[in-house]
Design a protein around this nucleic acid. Structure first.
Lengths: 224, 224
DNA sequence: TCCAAAACTATACGCTTGCATAAATACTAT
DNA sequence: ATAGTATTTATGCAAGCGTATAGTTTTGGA
């Protein structure tokens, strides 16, 4: 009764770090980078602000960890779509492209997050390193899928094709995420498949994967 | 001698507004959105902070004006490259694509600026309107160039082609701006022309425009 | 059972932000 | 020459920022 100090239960390093990262990402996705203050993050994570400094050397460290988490998740989401597709290189590539142009990868919140971090890329060397690694990893995945296609191409051509296809996907992802209602349902998937197919000399649209996977609806990016 | 108050000369609305917009853009390009504080902007424009409120209703208004300025300029820069190209629709399209993938359009500073504003797109309706208008205007320009090509395509196909080509350009622009040293000199121009050509069924690379225009070197985006 | 270590809270400090307000200056019209 | 007005400076304020630090609670092992 003296002073009702907040009750709490210990949760340990792993859980708290994850909770703080998730809180930072959700705030940033909703309301932009400037909304992700230490107080707001702590509040959403159900702790007080001081705890951030207990688990991270500072806010910058938390943001760096959060960036790594979200970027990795986006590549994972694209890859997960083709994990169980076994029937041919073309189908796998088509699945990868389509997954990148559909939720939860193509998503306004995801783009808000990505944009919020992007401007940090130029100032913070460690953020830049994460960006570079993520971009190259994604492109390598794509290049591997392209290399598996039944066609002949030397290393130089393979690199150029991967860069071009990655460009199409990135550009369409960006525009579809930024202006969701400027495109019809599934329009960007079709366009993306046609474009990638044209670049590689294939008819990828023929492999148009089913619009729904086994999951009913993945509504949010931000939920863990 | 009493108190050395700062000397000044009157410059009038037009000049001051432009100076403040230019200052805001240059700060943002250099060091990100959070560096563009009212004090820093005023300082760079050679005035004191209070003047911003005299010419704009608030900082948000200044940022909105600045966003309109930079986005318009980027489309202009792409269009300027083909203003004096008269020999054929393919050559004009090739010039447009190439210009979008070279300085001053493709440029780390320009991308920093673009990214800095992008996350405002989701919160501020007026910023979003500018974004939408700029994107659609750019795409319409591209679509007009595509429509002028000697080939047959219905309206639906024309729209899809424009979206796809715009996607390639945007994606390559983004990656080349974000990671300039990940690509060879001129590599993205070549890849972009090949990709757009493949999508449209042309050999655009044959029209590869000269690497230099009549200007010696446009070094900076941020200078007016 | 109790005690030491770790987890967590609470508070305050210094700094920066955008903005309001009031005073001073430079220019223009007369 | 001078008065008037728009332009510009100067100053202060309330709010919010990240962080440092000290104190309190929980927890698990001796």
């Amino acid at each position: 009764m003296t002073e009702d100090r907040r009750k709490f239960i210990r949760q340990g390093e792993e859980a708290r770090r994850e909770a703080l990262i998730a809180a930072a990402l959700s705030l940033m996705a909703e309301s932009g980078p400037e909304a992700a203050t230490v107080r707001a993050i702590a509040d959403r994570a159900g702790v007080t602000a001081g705890l951030i400094r207990h688990y991270f050397d500072g806010k910058d460290e938390l943001m760096l960890a959060a960036y790594g988490r979200i970027m990795g998740r986006m590549t994972e989401n694209s890859l997960a779509a083709i994990a169980h597709v076994g029937d041919g290189a073309e189908a796998r590539l088509a699945g990868f492209v389509a997954a990148s142009l559909r939720p939860p990868v193509m998503d306004p919140d995801a783009m808000g997050l990505w944009a919020g971090f992007l401007h940090l890329v130029r100032r913070d060397a460690r953020i830049r390193a994460v960006h570079r690694a993520t971009y190259l990893e994604y492109r390598d995945q794509l290049q591997r899928l392209i290399a598996a296609l039944p066609r002949q191409a030397d290393a130089r051509q393979l690199r150029a094709d991967a860069i071009a296809c990655n460009g199409v996907i990135d550009g369409l992802w960006l525009e579809g995420s930024a202006l969701p209602d400027a495109f019809d349902e599934g329009e960007l998937v079709t366009i993306g498949l046609q474009a990638v197919g044209a670049i590689l000399g294939l008819d990828l649209a023929a492999h148009l994967p089913p619009p729904f996977t086994d999951e009913p609806a993945p509504p949010e990016t931000r939920t863990e």
